[in-house]
Amino acid sequence: MLTFTLRRLLLAIPTLLFISLIIFLLVDLAPGSPMSEIPLTVPPEVRQKMIAALGADQPVFVRYILWLRQFFWVEPAYLLDGWFGTDLAGDQQRILSWQSRSPVFTVIGQRIPQTLTVIGTAYLVGILIAVPIGIYSAYRQYSLFDQLGTFVAMIGFSVPTFFTGTLFIIIFAVWLGWFPTKYDTTLEVTDWASFIRQMQQMAMPVMVLGLANAAAISRYMRSSMLENMGQDYVRTARAKGMTERTVVLKHVLRNSMIPVVTVIALGIPSIFGGAIITENLFGVNGIGAALIGAIHASDLPMVQTLAFIFAVLIVGFNLIADILYGFLDPRIRYD
């Protein structure tokens, strides 16, 4: 297992370098310029100077090499300096956002907590809802509960989050007035009242995303359960005289969890990626909102860095899912 992991990690290096180049070129060659946001009242000479000040007039490969250096050397050095009080980075240039002129990693650092709390909670809630629903739907296939579960899952799948989000806002915020429509990022949880406020402002984004996540995962859970439910070993377990609880929760569930755990693990990068639409809709200043904002403003360093971090996460969690598979399924060995 260890050699497998190490080999995969080594292989990931050229893969990620290649991905970084592709991302850089794609983002760079994509139409649009940071200048398109500047009002027409700004004269062209001033625009040219602004572009030069950003370093955006340099050839793309010069910028790529600079970015690689900043990403893999300067930024980690800053991180170490921050942890140990060393001075590895000196005053070397960090990756700066063109839009806010602040270091990209500072922005990411500011935003990760919101994304993890809101999107992470939504994912967790989604899993907690989906797994029991999936199990029970499969156990009572074609029952009323199953039909209802299928219906809700279909809605969760097919209705886009910007629609459910707006619907929830109109119902819960405008009509009922239960929850705020804008996430207050300055809120600090210090006591019970602020905790309640935090829960209130998280409620709608968590519901919207939880529904979408639960829909997908419950379907995986259900079909995986169904597949295993008909297996002979389940009949064996019943013939052994095991209780239904043991049969379903031990024999069937444990085998059914293998593909579901993979799906869940592969979905985790999307937590870090945030939920572009939902975050934007509810004003959660997470990574997704940062990405969409950066795309709108053609803030290339921000977009490139975020896209690359997502690539790293996806490669990483693929590896984790593979390793998990090895632990969960005794039939799979990597050595």
Partner: peptide
């Protein structure tokens, strides 16, 4: 009948 399928693989 199927000794493979009738044993819980895990």
């Amino acid at each position: 009948q199927d000794p493979q399928a009738s044993l819980n693989p895990r």
